[in-house]
Nucleic acid binder design. Structure first.
Length: 142
DNA sequence: GCCAACGTTGGC
DNA sequence: GCCAACGTTGGC
């Protein structure tokens, strides 16, 4: 099992939208590093949902329900170049964790989220995942 | 609105 | 292959 973090501007697509829809195709990624992370995701992997720009906090956990496939929103000529996955919501964080808190937590100082601040899909270590969950006062039971 | 980080494009 | 110009992301 691997852990990840994916960003979305809530104005474009929010945690609430994901819960409403039940499943989301995470498409539109046009960055090779982010795409490679999408392609590395396995069925059942867990991924934090991060609200960027407005919100600026981790708000929930979602689960990979379909592994990488060609992104239908890419132009035909680039259909093989870009990938997307499907996520389903698992649970919200009881307490959303703001970026400010992540920055203040020494154990999280090496998170890819901080080191590559513009990357929209980043890996999370098992340790970072557990710490962030506890900062969010959340226990997973599934 | 500003700006730092950084990926991409295109001339040479 | 280098690098300047430019566009985008995203925090503040």
């Amino acid at each position: 099992m691997n852990y990840w973090l994916a960003k979305s501007e809530p104005e474009a697509f929010s945690w609430h939208d994901l819960v409403r829809d039940g499943v989301a195709r995470w498409d539109g990624v046009r960055n090779y590093a982010a795409r490679n992370h999408l392609r590395a995701m396995q069925l059942g992997d867990l991924c934090f949902f991060y609200h960027s720009v407005t919100g600026v906090e981790v708000v929930g956990v979602m689960r990979v329900v379909r592994t990488a496939y060609p992104d239908p929103t890419a132009p035909d000529a680039e259909r093989d170049r870009w990938s997307c996955v499907d996520f389903a919501p698992l649970c919200p964080l009881a307490t959303p964790v703001p970026l400010r808190v992540i920055k203040q937590t020494p154990c999280l100082a090496n998170m890819a989220l901080l080191r590559q601040s513009r990357l929209s899909v980043t890996p999370v270590t098992p340790e970072e995942f557990a710490i962030l969950l506890s900062l969010g006062n959340t226990v997973l039971d599934f």
